[in-house]
């Protein structure tokens, strides 16, 4: 099965996120970057499927040229081909991103002379969290998509996909070529091996320059939510605090 995984480069924040002085981006001066978590799991799933059933994994990202780092990482954990759609580094709105990704996918499929049987997106990106790029791309390609997927089982001409709901799973049987929005928890992504790291340096990077027009949503500025005044009441420094805790549990009616 030939699988395409679309990933996004995002900052890796710790306990606080700062914003640049113009308010247009996360201040990443002291942060590393990573692949958005849902997408890291989507990639792992694609690699596991091709290890089991054969086929190739292609990874596509739209982002600054530095996103090559995430593509090389993808190659180090099993991706066969990597494609970058470079931006100027500014955040593209969801409509613009979806248009450019669709064109990049169509170009790659023409070069391959066949459609990707499965395209995986993360359910939403860790940073902007627009919850829509995968759905827009699937619709432009005329392919089915289901989101919130935490289980994939490919068969001939279809994939069985499990969607997490509050009390269990909904099961879909989606004909291929198909698109799925994957959630963290579908697997535990592997770490790269030394052999993988070496191979990733040799992976051939395809640059796909694409222009796409802006959509109807425009970023004005980012800001941190007002910090709630935290007046933590310390109930104790040993297990004798249990009495005060149970008093509170009784007071709020949960005990």
């Amino acid at each position: 099965m030939n699988i395409l995984v679309c990933v996004k480069r995002v900052p890796a924040p710790g306990s606080k996120i700062n914003v640049t002085s113009d308010g247009m981006a996360v201040d990443a001066a002291h942060l590393g970057f990573t692949t958005s978590p849902h997408e890291e799991c989507a990639l792992e799933e694609a690699v596991q499927i091709t290890e089991r059933d054969g086929g190739q994994v292609t990874v596509l990202t739209l982002g600054p040229v530095e996103a090559e780092e995430q593509l090389r990482y993808a190659a180090s954990v099993g991706a066969h081909k990597i494609i970058l759609v470079p931006t100027d580094g500014s955040a593209w709105d969801p409509q613009r991103t979806a248009s450019a990704l669709t064109e990049a996918i169509q170009t790659a499929e023409e070069a391959n002379n066949q459609p990707f049987e499965l395209i995986l997106f993360g359910n939403e990106s860790a940073d902007s969290g627009g919850f829509q790029v995968g759905v827009r791309v699937a619709h432009k390609l005329g392919r089915p998509i289901v989101n919130a997927i935490k289980g994939i089982d490919p068969s001939d001409c279809a994939v069985t996909a499990r969607r997490e709901i509050d009390a269990g799973f909904e099961v879909y049987n989606v004909p291929t070529p198909a698109v799925l929005g994957v959630k963290e928890g579908i697997n535990l992504p592997r770490y790269p091996t030394m052999k993988g790291r070496l191979a990733s340096k040799k992976a051939e990077l395809t640059n796909a320059e694409i222009t796409a027009k802006a959509g109807g949503q425009t970023l004005v500025r980012l800001h941190r939510p007002a910090e709630q005044a935290s007046n933590t009441e310390i109930l104790g420094t040993d297990e004798s605090a249990a009495v005060a805790i149970v008093d509170i549990l009784e007071e709020i009616g949960v005990c």
């Binding site: 996120i17 969290g129 970023l219 004005v220 980012l222 800001h223 941190r224 939510p225």
Partner: peptide, 9 residues
């Protein structure tokens, strides 16, 4: 954004 750690105007 960021699940609520940041807000976007």
């Amino acid at each position: 954004q960021w699940g609520g750690s940041l807000l976007e105007d």
